[in-house]
Design a protein around this nucleic acid. Structure first.
Lengths: 130, 130
DNA sequence: ATGCACCTTGTAGCCACTACAGGGTCAAGC
DNA sequence: GCTTGACCCTGTAGTGGCTACAAGGTGCAT
């Protein structure tokens, strides 16, 4: 399987696949006579895993850890679960931050009753005069 | 006012202030005999504005626009309001994305009943076998 | 032989900072 | 006058996770 095919199969750009290889997160592929990368079904599985973990918001280092863990079928799930819990907490924190932002932006909008910037409460509140 | 004082007053690192200057978003400061930057109260006001806009999630280009607009006391608020609305929509989109993530992570955690990675549904669902 | 889609490596750019390295300035205390 | 230490200067490189080229090679159909 060539890089373009793998790219289409996983919704990843070829450049990104090569980037994962450089980072050592996706194993090296075999090469054809013409020096094209030749991927196996295992590569497809690993890349799928990487993409799903990335979409869930895990960073590259965490993806690396998750990949390592996923190879050890005999180990307890505990570590994996802890990582997922940690990521969940991180996402919750981000949602809370954004919700605060949302409220503030919405409050600003409601506060603008003027129609000239000179009296605009939006601009005022950005200036820190509130 | 020297850079460290301005930094403390606004909760900004000195490096960041110099970065804003390089970017042309914060006007050049006067210099003392010893070549230290010497900031005015206007600089303090501008930097406060920049920081508040950044905290609200506006990008640098948008901050630049907001600064330009805030100087035109006679202009209608419309443009400013539109930018705030746009930012609000952006924040809503991010909250929606994160909420989806949150649900998926939480679903994964609940699904893990096994105690060995070999049977772990968390690892399974990352692998795309679900 | 030609065209075209695909592949190769290598390098630079994105955003908004942040972190140095290597040096200069200034005020206080001895 | 000299040292100490806090502060400042410029310039450059790094962060994360890609993405976008440039310049060239390969493979297959016509």
């Amino acid at each position: 399987m060539r890089i373009g095919e793998l790219a289409r199969a996983t919704g990843t750009k070829a450049e990104t696949i090569r980037y994962y290889e450089r980072e050592g997160i996706l194993p090296l592929a075999d090469r054809t006579d013409g020096n094209y990368r030749d991927y196996s079904p295992e590569h497809l599985a690993t890349l799928t895993f990487i993409r799903r973990a990335r979409e869930l918001g895990f960073g590259m280092e965490q993806v690396r850890l998750l990949l390592d863990l996923s190879d050890r079928a005999d180990k307890p799930c505990e570590e994996v679960d802890l990582m997922v819990e940690g990521q969940l907490a991180e996402v919750d924190r981000k949602i809370a931050d954004l919700t605060r932002l949302r409220e503030e932006l919405s409050r600003m909008l409601r506060s603008c009753q003027a129609d000239r910037i000179g009296e605009c409460r939006v601009v005022e509140s950005l200036s820190g005069r509130r």
